[in-house]
């Protein structure tokens, strides 16, 4: 099993053959995973801030840091590897309320709303999410099966549609 680590402000694409995309320490950041079950192409984006207009130069240099620059790139890369919009399974985790000095209070919620807005405008709905609350999360997307695993509070579960959505936002 080939594990591909997605760091902060990072995005990786995988296409089956026993590959797992993983990202850690999702506090106020959001891990957005998209997967095409037919072509088995998957992408995982770990973004930190909602809006690059506060720092356009940074948005160009590090597009995956921001929702508005990172999400379109994630989608383009998945489409480029054979993913089709109407087949995509979209799952998200993170956006927690972290009382960390380095983070602006409520950045988690703003990240979540920014992500929803961009996906809605792109014509994409979310299938499953684990957002809000106060705990950090880790996610893994297995591109051979399409399953997404969530680690939160020491417990691991599969992130599926219809499961509990929020950690209490």
């Amino acid at each position: 099993m080939d594990q591909i680590i997605v760091g902060m402000a990072d995005c990786r694409i995988a296409d089956g053959a026993g590959q797992v995309l993983a990202t850690f320490a999702l506090g106020s950041c959001i891990g957005l995973a998209i997967y095409d079950p037919q072509t088995k192409v998957g992408g995982l984006l770990h973004f930190m801030l909602p809006d690059s207009t506060i720092d356009p130069a940074r948005g160009k240099a590090q597009p995956f840091m921001f929702a508005d620059t990172g999400i379109p790139l994630l989608l383009d890369q998945v489409y480029g590897r054979g993913g089709l919009k109407r087949r995509l399974i979209v799952r998200a985790a993170g956006g927690a309320r972290m009382m960390d000095q380095e983070n602006v209070f409520e950045i988690g919620k703003r990240n979540y709303l920014a992500m929803r807005k961009i996906l809605w405008k792109s014509g994409i709905l979310v299938h499953a999410e684990a957002v809000g609350g106060v705990r950090s999360r880790t996610v893994r997307l297995d591109t051979s099966t399409g399953k997404m695993w969530l680690l939160e509070g020491g417990e691991q579960r599969e992130l599926v549609a219809g499961g509990p959505r929020q950690g209490g936002n």
Binding site: K109, L113, W120
Partner: peptide, 8 residues
């Protein structure tokens, strides 16, 4: 505003 307009 949050649910349908994605605005905080």
């Amino acid at each position: 505003l949050e649910k349908m307009f994605f605005v905080e």
